[in-house]
Design a protein around this nucleic acid. Structure first.
Lengths: 227, 227
DNA sequence: TTAGCTTTCTATGTATACACAGGGCTTCAA
DNA sequence: TTGAAGCCCTGTGTATACATAGAAAGCTAA
């Protein structure tokens, strides 16, 4: 048995919001969703409460709980927070890292920086590597508050995946940017790690916004690509 | 009418945790607290859920919901996050501020930097000024995500007030540090504002830790001063 | 006396019933 | 036909009853 109905409801709703099954602006009624997910209102309310705390729902007084939008402006704001958090994370990771761990990751990024991302399996390998790099940073910073802020940030960032489109050129570029970061952390160079992170995020944002720009014609009131 | 019982329960419990009425390590049972606060378990559970999301409670599996500790290590971690968030906030505020607003605040900090903090009313006036300065920054950054992270951070910081002890010398010093920050924001100098914030937080942390140090004898398992 | 099993108790998790408020729709009258 | 008033309906907020799991204590047997 999946222990808790509230947990199940939370995960389903969160995933549906993150993959745009529940589009921004969708109103979530309690009875309606409780019925749909097969749980009673009590655990569902807990799930809705957590999603609201996460910032995925907002309490538009009068309309009920609404899935939050992700406009271009939201993305820019998100990256302003991301710059602050990830630069600090890079600094702390550089100070407190296990050198072996990051040297191993560096070697993997060296491999990746070649043109291996032209096929699906290469891209999957890259995404997996980035995920393991993020986990290594998370472990290294040894700061529960920063870690919590990063986790919450990533919830919102994962809504952007819809936009990513797996452009191989961008991924190769991204790999070489990561290589600078991971090397700096391995070397214990906190300021280099922070600045390399700055660059990487700057370029990521430029890329994301260029996609959103090209997609303006098919927008409704958000960056959603299709509909 | 105080509309919602859950809101009332949340505010009472939050305030009790922040002013150390509920000490770190205290276990909060649902029935027990529902009885004490005169609400039923349903709204109380919502309050406990929010407090857990805030990081004021933790789910120590097996013991139930426990008020989180605030050790010296926690304070250092908190300030590492604070550095990241407030430096970014200072940068953005400098870019987007209403100059008039911050010039007016600067004049008030000039007044304060003299030795007016020797009596209680002077200190209250200073705390009020800092609060208005924080609000001005919050308004100026125009970033909901950063603002949310700052608000959550401040919940934890306010637990440190217990330590503050209103040292007039530190307050005068703090006022002159704020003066640099507010001037930089008024001038639109983002990097100066960030660096001045860095200095201010560095000194604040040093001061807080020196107090905690001096208090080590009366510690239990946290920085609580009395008991 | 001690170890292991069973029982019970207390806690959380869940379901559901009731309360109440706000909005929309219908109806009646001018 | 239109405006206003009242009623109903839908949704959230709250209370409470029931289910269940984990821990602690007691009982029995060796």
């Amino acid at each position: 048995m999946a222990k808790k109905a509230s947990e199940k409801a939370y995960e389903i709703l969160r995933d549906e919001i993150l993959d745009w099954t529940l589009a921004p602006g969708t109103v979530l009624g309690e009875v309606e969703q409780a019925l749909r997910l097969g749980v009673s209102r009590t655990p569902l309310r807990e799930a809705l409460g957590r999603l609201t705390a996460d910032g995925l729902l907002t309490n538009d007084l009068g309309r009920g709980l609404v899935v939050t939008a992700l406009s271009t402006k939201n993305v820019e704001e998100l990256f302003e927070l991301r710059q602050a958090l990830e630069q600090q994370a890079a600094r702390l990771a550089a100070k407190r890292r296990d050198p072996e761990l990051f040297l191993a990751l560096r070697d993997e990024f060296v491999e990746m920086a070649s043109a291996r991302m032209l096929d699906e399996s290469g891209r999957q390998a890259y995404y997996d590597l980035v995920r393991r790099f993020d986990e290594a940073v998370d472990q290294s910073i040894r700061n529960q508050y920063l870690l919590g802020a990063l986790r919450n940030l990533r919830i919102h960032l994962s809504r952007l995946r819809r936009l990513a489109q797996d452009n191989p050129f961008r991924l190769v570029e991204s790999a070489s940017e990561h290589l600078v970061i991971v090397s700096a952390i391995a070397d214990g160079d906190a300021e280099l790690a922070a600045h390399a992170t700055h660059i990487h995020l700057y370029k990521s944002l430029r890329y994301a916004l260029s996609l959103a720009q090209g997609d303006e014609g098919s927008q409704r009131d958000s960056m959603q690509i299709v509909g």
